[in-house]
Each structure stands twice: as C-alpha cells, then as structure tokens.
Computed example of a mutant assay.
Amino acid sequence: MTVNPAAEHLVREFTRRGLTIATAESLTAGLCSATIAEVPGASAVLRGGVIVYATELKHDLAGVSEETLRAHGPVAAETAAELAKGAARRCGADVGVALTGVAGPDPQDGHPVGEVFIAVYDSARGARVENLYAEYVRLVNEGEFAGLDAAQLRAKIRQFSVNRALEMASA
C-alpha cells in the first residue's frame, strides 16, 4: 500500500511543529483519519475524530449548533466551520479538519454532486473554509472523471476531498 503524499507531508509538518489534528467527517466517513493513520509516526499527531454522517450527529458529536443546521443545512460552509472547531475541541487537538458534501450518485437536498465544503480550524486563525465545487466542475470539464461509473466517481470525489483537506491543514 502506498502512503498518501499529502498525509505524509502533514504528519511530517505537524510533528516538526508539535501540532495535533482531529477530524469531523461526514462525506468521507473516516477516510481522512484513516489516510493520516497510514503514515508511520501518525500517532504523534492524530488525536482522533468523529464520523458525523447523520445530520443530528453533527450537533450531538461535533457541537454544530442546531441554529446553523436549521439555517444552512448539513452541506454548508458554516456547518463545515463548526464541525472543524468541534473536532478540535472534542478531541483536544490543535487543528480540526471537517469534510461535508455530496459524493453522489445523486444530488442531495438541492446540492449537486461534487459540492464539498472543507474547513480547517485552529485557535490562532479560526476556521478557513473552501467549497470544492468549482474545482470539481473544472475537473469534469477537463475529462478527469470521464468514463467513471457512479461508484468510481463517488470514490474519486471522496479521495480528492481528503487530499485537499490534508493540503489545507498543512498550509
């Protein structure tokens, strides 16, 4: 098994800087944490995470306010920001990373396939959020996802999202 280069970079950088990380994962259901854990030495930086696939668990486990969920829903920048902060707090980590979105095969509650929000939280900078939908559309238009069936496309969106989350957290 090949170690993910973005995860390897994150573990190396966080170890060097003495930082820890935790995740709140909806879209990826633990894939981001598992990707970090594949790196030798990950135990020095990975505190843990919460899988919040169900909307109510975003509140119950990660502390997303009910108001945010009511006003914006589970797939939103505001929700991702609160998820990331909640992961850091719940797990006692320096940095929290959150992933929420739609991997398909069908749109969800008015959100198109490929709409993904990633947030990275730390106490010094607060939450930084990215919406990956424009990048997804660009990749589709360039043929990056051509010929993939629904399951393959879903896997590709999830892995692409994890890679981007790891890059954001390392920045």
Rank of each mutant, 00 (worst) to 15 (best):
A119G: 13
A127I: 08
F14H: 05
A155N: 12
G18V: 02
V45Y: 01
K156R: 15
S33G: 15
D109A: 15
L10I: 04
G86E: 07
G143Y: 04
L139P: 02
S26L: 06
N131A: 04
I118N: 07
R70M: 12
G48S: 11
A24D: 09
S123K: 08
V116M: 10
V95I: 15
E115W: 01
A87S: 10
L99H: 04
L99G: 09
P107C: 09
G49P: 07
T28K: 01
G126L: 04
A151Q: 11
G30C: 06
N163F: 00
V45K: 01
E167T: 06
V75Y: 05
R16Y: 05
A76R: 05
T100G: 12
S33D: 13
T15Q: 02
E144A: 14
V129K: 10
G126W: 11
S43Q: 09
V39W: 03
A103K: 04
E38S: 13
V116L: 09
E144V: 08
E144W: 06
T15L: 02
H9I: 02
Q108L: 14
D60L: 09
R90Q: 13
G147D: 10
Q108K: 07
L99S: 10
A71E: 15
L83V: 04
K58P: 06
S123F: 00
V120S: 08
M1H: 14
F145R: 11
R154Y: 07
E13I: 00
Q159I: 00
T2F: 04
L139C: 09
R125L: 10
D106K: 12
Y53T: 02
Y121P: 07
L27Y: 01
V45W: 01
E78K: 12
V162F: 03
E13M: 11
Y53C: 14
T20L: 07
V113A: 09
V140Q: 12
G114W: 03
L148Q: 12
A7Q: 12
A37D: 13
V50M: 12
T20W: 06
V137R: 14
A134E: 14
R158D: 09
T28N: 11
D94P: 02
R89F: 05
A93D: 11
A42K: 03
F117R: 14
V162P: 08
N4E: 13
V39F: 03
G104W: 03
A77S: 14
A42R: 02
H9E: 15
V95A: 07
L57W: 00
Y136K: 12
T79K: 06
G73V: 00
V52R: 03
A134I: 02
A169H: 04
R90P: 00
L69F: 01
L132G: 11
G48K: 04
R128N: 06
A44P: 04
L69D: 10
N4Y: 05
V52A: 11
V116N: 13
C32H: 07
S65D: 13
V129Q: 10
F14R: 02
C32Q: 08
S43P: 05
L57P: 00
E130S: 05
T79S: 13
V3D: 15
